[in-house]
């Protein structure tokens, strides 16, 4: 089966098997920021944005992305530079092992797009979508708060 969709701003068409998940397709297309951890929608490591909505790409079938717009970390990172969310995560040393970070960047991007003036409580309520097994939540929340302020400026 063949589908067409927009991946990180570029139209793509892809052959896929019916049982492929969006995560599988994205990784096959080179979007290695998309990480599989729990595989059942609990941890947020595979979070991507589809038509403006934050979703778990481990639970969406690839075929469900047909005609949609999909954004991964690769799509928000400017060439040779970092997105303000990425810079803030670095500045606050919020990344330890780093495996959860792409998912957290996408959740933070969703917060920046939809709740640009979010306070700490709102950030924490939405970041519940992500598990960091290193337990670095405080620094992650601080970094996302700082990034939102930076983006607002």
């Amino acid at each position: 089966m063949k589908i067409e969709f927009v991946l990180n701003g570029k139209p793509v068409s892809a052959e896929l098997r019916g049982n492929e998940r969006l995560m599988d397709l994205l990784r096959r297309l080179g979007m290695k920021s998309v990480k599989e951890a729990c595989g059942t929608g609990d941890c947020g490591s595979c979070n991507v944005i589809v038509d403006g909505k934050l979703i778990n790409s481990c639970m969406m079938l690839a075929v469900q992305a047909r005609g949609k717009t999909v954004t991964t970390v690769e799509g928000i990172t400017p060439e040779e530079k970092l997105h303000p969310i990425q810079s803030a995560l670095l500045e606050y040393t919020a990344s330890q092992c780093g495996f959860c970070i792409p998912g957290i960047i996408m959740t933070a991007k969703y917060i920046a797009d939809n709740h640009p003036t979010a306070d700490e409580q709102t950030i924490r309520q939405i970041l519940i979508a992500n598990i960091c097994r290193c337990g670095g939540y405080t620094k992650i929340v601080d970094a996302v708060s700082a990034a939102l302020k930076q983006i607002q400026r």
Binding site: G41, G44, N47, K53, L54, I55, N56, M59, M60, T107, Y110, Q125, I126, I128, A129
Partner: peptide, 11 residues
């Protein structure tokens, strides 16, 4: 607030 996470609610 109480139904899963934002990701779950979107799906």
């Amino acid at each position: 607030k109480y139904f899963g996470a934002e990701t779950t609610r979107h799906m």
